[in-house]
């Protein structure tokens, strides 16, 4: 049940991502004249159309129903932890027994927080920069087309593969081509550390950030750009004053959604060496020296507790509670993304 829910949540997350990206682009189009189609169709009795509407509506309701059932089931199982010791659960740590009153997810919350922060600080500027270059500066050549194809394919690569890349680059001391040593990378990240995990997940979400930012940049009306040129702006001025502000809502949405994807990933973290069993180290949230220390993250805690529930059945409830916490965090991020998008779209228009 719990595993199903995880799969389901991640698929919903992707659907939301697709929806908001498409939505941001499509809105502009809808406003510009797709609205007023002919009213003649209403005169005929449209049986096929009604059936189609019923089918797609039931598809929506079925998926909502499944989500609802899973959500309620998870919240019910997690309730014993969340209702009686909510703050203790948020402030507790990894423990060996589910009855321990210091059991909780704080280490995972902090780990996930830092991973999100690192993704925001690295994938965001690189991704937006790459998108603007591809859309505004790159020549429409075969090379550019190939590059875009590669980026789109990279967005579909399974996350475990990125985990292997992270393991190779940031955790193990490797050499590429037999002579380019990567040991300095390991020295910089501290091996099995939050920094390695954050950088790995940055690489994972980079293609998504680039693609969503590209879509947003592409949706900037050409009149705005030409207006800027007409007033004597240089290309970089045009990008700074027209393209970026107009595309900001779309870029922001894509980035926040990519970040919530990063926060929900477990497989790459397992490879990069997130600790699953027990961890003494529990530094303050703002203690940046912990970046190069061993860490754990919310999805890892969920995986660990789900697998421990055979030995100690109480961990099933703890895992459900941790899922609720992760779900709340991801929903909060997604909601912020949508609110921010709406706010900036209103402001822009």
């Amino acid at each position: 049940m719990i595993v199903l829910l995880l799969v389901f949540v991640s698929s919903i997350e992707r659907a939301v991502m697709a929806f908001t990206t498409v939505g941001a682009v499509a809105r502009g189009g809808a406003r510009r004249g797709l609205v007023g189609t002919s009213g003649f169709a209403k005169l005929r009795t449209d049986i096929a159309g009604g059936l189609f509407k019923f089918l797609i509506l039931s598809a929506l309701l079925a998926s909502l129903l499944i989500l609802g059932v899973l959500l309620i089931d998870t919240i019910v199982s997690g309730w014993s932890q969340l209702s009686t010791r909510f703050w203790d659960f948020l402030n507790g740590s990894l423990r060996s027994r589910s009855i321990d009153d210091r059991l909780g997810v704080q280490q995972g919350l902090y780990g996930s927080f830092w991973i999100g922060a690192i993704v925001a600080c690295t994938a965001f500027p690189i991704g937006v920069g790459a998108a603007i270059y591809l859309e505004e500066y790159a020549l429409r050549s075969r090379l550019t087309a190939t590059l875009e194809l590669v980026i789109r394919n990279l967005a579909g690569v399974p996350s475990v593969v990125y985990g292997l890349l992270g393991l190779f680059l940031f955790v193990e001391r490797n050499t590429i081509f037999g002579f380019i040593g990567l040991g300095w990378l390991v020295d910089a990240t501290g091996g099995r550390s939050v920094l390695s995990a954050g950088l790995t997940l940055s690489v994972l979400v980079l293609p998504i950030v680039i693609i969503t930012a590209q879509e947003a940049v592409r949706a900037v009306p050409v009149q705005l750009k030409e207006g800027a040129y007409g007033l004597g702006a240089t290309k970089s001025e045009m990008v700074r004053t027209q393209v970026l502000p107009y595309a900001a809502p779309g870029i922001l949405t894509g980035t926040l959604l990519a970040m919530s994807r990063a926060i929900g990933e477990a497989a790459p973290l397992i490879l990069v060496g997130a600790i699953s069993g027990g961890l003494t180290n529990n530094p303050e949230l703002w203690d940046a020296s912990a970046l190069r220390e061993k860490f754990t993250a919310l999805p890892i805690i969920i995986v660990e507790w789900v697998s421990e529930r055979g030995r100690d059945p109480g961990f099933a409830d703890a895992a459900a509670a941790a899922i609720v916490v992760l779900l709340a965090l991801v929903l909060l991020l997604n909601m912020t993304a949508i609110l921010l998008r709406n706010y900036f779209e209103r402001k822009r228009d």
Binding site: L90, Q106, L109, Y110, F113, G116, A117, A120, R240, T241, Q242, L244, P245, A248, L252, T255, L256, E284, L285, L329, L332, L333, T336, L340, F344, K347
Partner: peptide, 25 residues
């Protein structure tokens, strides 16, 4: 103004990160 706006977005984003982190801590 748009540049400032964009900066404000970035700062807001950072604050948001801080907010969701500190509400837990």
């Amino acid at each position: 103004r748009p540049v400032l706006q964009f900066l404000a977005v970035a700062v807001g984003f950072a604050l948001l990160l801080g907010a969701c982190g500190s509400s837990d801590s």
